[in-house]
Amino acid sequence: MIELLDLKNDVVFKDFFGDKSNKEILESFINAVLGLEGDDCIEIEEFLDPRKMRVEVGKPSTFVDLSVKTRGGERYIIEMQTYNHDGFDKRLLYYLGKDYTEQIEYHYHQPTASQALNDKKAKKMIGWADLPRVHIIAIIDFHRNRKEKNGILNHHEVVETYRFKPQISASNEYIFDHWKATIVDLKKFKSKPVNKLKTDKEIWIYILNNAPFLKEDEIEVLKKDPVFQRALERLEMLSADPKTRKAYEVSVNDQRDHLAIMEAAERKAHKEGRKEEKVEIAQALLKQGLPVNQISEATGLLSEEIEALR
């Protein structure tokens, strides 16, 4: 049995859920996470080019992991995030707004014979009322606060959906119903034995959290469901592919380097912050007329540093 790759890894996540020939895998995940059943279940009509969602604010530029359009015309953005960074919530809002407005550029008529000959497409004029809904699903695997270790969300639910609501009249909710954001907080999920998983949502979150650690007997239990059988066979195929494994290892090393840089920056900022506190204390003690050697002993600053503060 080959060791399965971590689904939370950027390379594996995109290849696993972005396979057009196995779109029912992503359909199952979206429907399970959002609790959609029966006629409400989504069907993916098209995988969109995620590079259209490129963010050029910083370098290197980034774009969403996956973007799809359903048969009902709605758009779903799927994003996996394994580390916290400033502005994460604003980034989700940016993606929602950018995808919503880009739909104006997206819709086209089928080209006429002459247009096809010239390899051109005629834009379809759509009204504002025709703009479909946009929903972002962000899967996160980091703590909001390292000290509290309580995930990114304040509430205890693993999956929470947010939408815009009017402050005064509930009758106007339909105006604000076109943008939704669902956060799947993997840190909040309490693991349990495979045979105790009751819903597809629990199974998906369990696989996301534990793919590299799944045992053979657990995989056999999960494969009893046709969708999860196909999903795990897809993950097994990716895990056995040398090119995918190499890209996976490069991605893991890049992420480790990034985290190391972030932690080093935090330590430096903390150290500099403590230095500023010591300087303030030394200045206060100088004003009180204490000798330099006593101030040095109290603050840990060098005598030369304290003399320079006079």
Rank of each mutant, 00 (worst) to 15 (best):
L238E: 11
D185F: 04
K196G: 01
R256L: 10
E45C: 02
I219T: 08
Y174F: 14
R256V: 12
T82H: 06
I30G: 05
V64W: 09
D19T: 05
P166A: 07
I104E: 14
F29R: 00
F164A: 15
E276L: 00
S61K: 11
Y162S: 08
F228Y: 11
D99G: 00
H258Y: 15
F142W: 09
K223R: 14
K268Q: 12
F29W: 10
L7Y: 10
A211I: 01
K123A: 09
M1A: 11
K69S: 13
L4I: 00
L208E: 11
I295Y: 00
E74A: 02
M125A: 15
K188C: 08
Q288V: 00
R267F: 08
D39Y: 07
A308Q: 03
Q110A: 13
R234P: 01
D40F: 10
G87Y: 04
Y206I: 01
V292H: 01
I30V: 14
S67W: 03
T101C: 03
E102T: 03
L48K: 05
S239L: 08
V194D: 12
A260R: 12
I219R: 08
N210R: 04
E304C: 00
N195P: 02
I152R: 03
Y83S: 12
Q288T: 01
H109F: 08
R267Q: 14
K14Q: 11
V252G: 01
D10H: 04
K278P: 00
A211C: 02
L302D: 15
W204D: 13
G87N: 05
I25N: 05
I306E: 10
L208D: 12
L302R: 07
A129Q: 15
S296Y: 01
L93S: 09
Q81T: 05
K224R: 15
F213S: 13
T161A: 10
S296C: 05
K147T: 12
V33W: 04
D99F: 01
I2T: 08
K69L: 12
E74D: 11
L26Y: 05
K187G: 06
A269D: 11
S114T: 03
H143E: 15
N118R: 15
D15K: 12
P242E: 15
N209V: 02
A240Y: 07
A298K: 02
L186E: 09
I137E: 08
F47P: 10
G58T: 11
F17K: 06
S171E: 15
K223G: 09
R146A: 01
P212F: 09
L117A: 06
A116C: 05
R71D: 10
A122L: 13
R245W: 07
I295E: 02
A264F: 07
R256N: 14
D89N: 11
L232C: 04
L301W: 00
S67G: 04
V194E: 12
Q81F: 06
L117H: 05
D177R: 06
I139H: 00
A138I: 00
K287W: 09
P212Y: 13
Q110R: 13
A240E: 14
D39T: 00
S303V: 06
A181V: 06
G273A: 02
